[in-house]
Design a protein around this nucleic acid. Sequence first.
DNA 1: CTGTTAGCGCATTCAC
DNA 2: GTGAATGCGCTAACAG
Lengths: 343, 343
Amino acid sequence: MATIDDVAKSAGVSKSTVSNVFSQKRPISKEVSERVLEAARELNYKPNYWARSLANKETRIIGLNMEGEKVKFGQFRMALLNGVLQECYDRGNRLLVNMLPKHFTNRLENWSSDPIDGEILLDPMVRDPRIEERVASGIPIVVIGKPPESHESTVSYVSSDNVGAGRRVTEYLIGLGHRNILFLNAPKHRTVSHERLDGYRRALETAGLSVDTRLLVYRDEGFESSEEYGYITAKRLLYARPSITAIITDTDKIARGVYQAAEELGLIIPRDLSVFAFSLETAYGTELQPPVSSMRLNGELLGSEAAKMLLDQCASKTPVVRRVIIPWELILRDSCAPVKVFL
Amino acid sequence: MATIDDVAKSAGVSKSTVSNVFSQKRPISKEVSERVLEAARELNYKPNYWARSLANKETRIIGLNMEGEKVKFGQFRMALLNGVLQECYDRGNRLLVNMLPKHFTNRLENWSSDPIDGEILLDPMVRDPRIEERVASGIPIVVIGKPPESHESTVSYVSSDNVGAGRRVTEYLIGLGHRNILFLNAPKHRTVSHERLDGYRRALETAGLSVDTRLLVYRDEGFESSEEYGYITAKRLLYARPSITAIITDTDKIARGVYQAAEELGLIIPRDLSVFAFSLETAYGTELQPPVSSMRLNGELLGSEAAKMLLDQCASKTPVVRRVIIPWELILRDSCAPVKVFL
DNA sequence: CTGTTAGCGCATTCAC
DNA sequence: GTGAATGCGCTAACAG
């Protein structure tokens, strides 16, 4: 690969002239410029990205960081990714998907700063070392979701209105007459689970109902799949507590497991059991029979807003902490019905 | 941000010692090593990625290149991405999603080599400047899909068996009695459209039928959405040529438009019109009523195989051209039926 | 408008 | 085992 020196020599000019022809950071006479470009073409020369970054202290790359092992993109994350990419596209940035295994990053030889100008963090946790580390290093970050309390006032974020969503769903089910609503929440270490629970609580309290902690379950990572988790947990609890008439799940994949459990227990959805899923891993919620009611979370907007905030933050020298809350939309399909009345 | 010099000074050793403590490229006494690490911790030092890359001539980043404007990830691309990421994860590589607008890369100041060790190219075209450019620069690439003929023997690729798929689908429809099968193919400039057409042709010829070129349509980019393209094209052609009893579409989104056209023309699927979609943008093909028959293309395997090939290629000093063909699976749902017999 | 010089932060010869 | 010098390819500050 040819270097800037080769081009300079070949065009009979200095390195800095070549550099400036490319960077356009100061005017070069048309004549010289053409000569340089011609030489560059001949030598198949392109400025070296790393060298440029090293000197510029800027990469024009932002990172997308997903916590956990073997995280896959599902429908929601994909929408989010599309939003981020759209913004990157519009502003000439690249996106680095940052998902390295711990057994890798833990090894000394793989230690290093990240090759990015800033990073978007997904799935914030109640105690999130990623955030602490970025803040300590002074790397601009934007969190998607609610940051842990310790950083809520110092870190920019964009989040769905999870408290409101939790509340709205619960109110809806209460309105249908449900009193024993099982909540198969997200994992306890994720901040989102606390927000949703908060909404759930408030709805119950507003309705004058008390919260039965036995109906509160956090997703536990020990299961092989979401479906299995939903299936096993629902089956166990529906069996132990037949008074349950409705279930709120974290995702539609978990709902899928719940559907299966219901079927095996001879419960018909929605006649005997109402099911609601917060977020959708699949596109239309129609792969289940009946289609499951859910929230539309607008991942694309979450993503594009986050990217926008991050890129602004990278650009400005005096960054400001910003927050954006993205509204959800309640999508009613056919999985919830008024509670059965025993005559 | 602290540099290697700061750490060296603070630990009372030389730069190279610090370097070697981190890179582990040669033994450092435990004592000195600890002292260096301690100093690094105090200063919050991490080796600088760009500087390291510059010296190492290696980034441990691979790129994913998608052609075209405003490309979004749909279901298929997402599966593909997951496969690529899985492999990156296992081998400690990062993924750079490379999707910069032309009006950006065309500007001189944004010209540069890409900050990657190698690249995966999606959606190869019949004449693909991306490939020529990479080959000229000596950057390792792997194409997903069939490369243009000019490079078929020099570039590694992994592809679905598109010819076989085209053939199989057509045979299936012929077997149902269809004789006038409209083919809403992928865009003409994509190699995949030619492969599928090839299969379509062979099936017809084997059955002793002739190819009616008026039933061959290539996707044209002039439409706002896939749905609209499917809708308008199907409506026009179904109206003009009522003898059409079956339609093969590129994707399920296009099929969605076809469904709409059929409905407006009073055609019932599959009674009056059979519809088949090659690839699925949505997860289950169930968002359409009736669910559309399609191919399962195994995007995840395509992605992981491509990443594997690419990383191998980056590692070896004497790269070999490899090809992998991923089998498809025919998924029959309820959108195709035997052709109506007029009594 | 163009050339010269001195870094950016790290890795890699060599010596010791 | 450790240290000093040189270079990776480019940009920037200062001359002219």
